[in-house]
Design a protein around this nucleic acid. Structure first.
Lengths: 211, 211
DNA sequence: GTCTATACACTGATAGAC
DNA sequence: GTCTATCAGTGTATAGAC
């Protein structure tokens, strides 16, 4: 039964091609922005003819939308650590670690997200208003509980969350600037550890948590 | 002498038109990115025919370059407060205030800068390597002196600077997200004050400075 | 200096052979 | 499902009248 040596069903091949295209698209959208990206560039990077992209994703915008949604998913999953923790040191510390890991290993996604938000979220505004709003309020409640329990200083939960997002995502979105200021070299393993450590140290001490 | 009632010399008219174009360009580049911005959109926003833009700025890129350079200038001037201060509480506190003011009143500029850096600084890489590098090292030295004098906790100066940039610019670059999470309303005067206060409080406490 | 009209290149999207 | 060839629309930039 030669047709079973590799069970490449139609569905599997479709998912494979889609992933190839989505990975290439994420990189190109991150490097050039939505307007600067071209279907030709994405096709070249994926190693496919341009027409194939339109077979899997009818329009440039539909492809872009899928890229942004995938990033949002990764981003939300990193937030799980927040809920499982009992103390702010654990929860916020682990959240910083998780988000720094994403900034390091998934910088293109972070850039696409930043670009989308900077341009007033033309395609994911509904996500901001529903999923992100719900998530934010839920986490704000947890922070308020920690404050009420005397586990941390009474800071504004929203501004604390913005600071967590800003500092961690900065290492992805402004990675090129950081690399330039690092003598043109990407951060080494030790430097990434130092970055994580610095961010956690300043923020945790900043909210009155002993490190 | 009727021709002197308004001394609109050629040079003055040129500067006026240039400013009109540059202001419009900054907004459009911020909203749409370099690739998404069109000379037509900029011309419409400036209230001029498209050809006039090419009279003052030969290419789209030269116009963009000028916009980015202007932002960098504003950005550097805000940093003066850093040097005039004797203590970290003064210097860093005033720096945060200054940068938050820019984020509030000059958000388009911040977005253009962020976009330029995210796309690997195609037009201002030389600035990053010279002016920004020099500025950063100078400020890192000041921070190290403060640490040596026992005025603040021993944190990595570079990561502290990145945190200052990240947190303050976040209020401009991700202003739309913050507005959405604020029920769709822009931050009020009181909310901006609270934001400034929160950022200063957490960071200053985070570096071991009594507020 | 200012503006209209236009040249020329490129992009997203599709038709149609295989 | 995959690819080549092509179309219609849009963008930057310029020529040339005023």
């Amino acid at each position: 039964m030669p047709q079973m040596q590799k069970p490449n069903s139609k569905k599997e091949r479709r998912l494979e091609s889609e992933k190839l295209i989505l990975d290439a698209a994420e990189k190109v959208f991150a490097e050039a922005g939505f307007g600067g990206a071209t279907m030709q560039l994405i096709a070249d990077m994926a190693g496919l003819p341009k027409a194939n992209l339109h077979y899997y994703f009818p329009t440039k915008e539909s492809l872009y939308r899928q890229v942004v949604q995938n990033i949002f998913q990764v981003w939300l999953e990193a937030a799980d650590v927040f809920d499982k923790a009992e103390t702010p040191a654990e929860g916020i510390g682990a959240y910083i670690d998780a988000k720094m890991e994403i900034s390091r290993h998934h910088p293109a996604g972070s850039k696409v997200w930043a670009s989308e938000v900077m341009h007033r979220a033309p395609v994911i505004q509904d996500y901001l208003e529903t999923t992100l709003t719900d998530w934010t309020e839920g986490r704000a409640t947890i922070i308020e509980r920690w404050i009420a329990e005397g586990r941390m200083a009474p800071v504004d939960p929203h501004h604390l969350l913005y600071m967590l997002w800003a500092t961690t995502q900065h290492y992805a979105d402004f990675g090129h600037q950081i690399e330039t200021l690092n003598g043109g070299e990407p951060l080494s393993d030790a430097q990434w550890d130092a970055a994580k450590q610095s961010v956690k140290e300043i923020i945790l001490r900043g909210i009155g948590v002993t490190v």
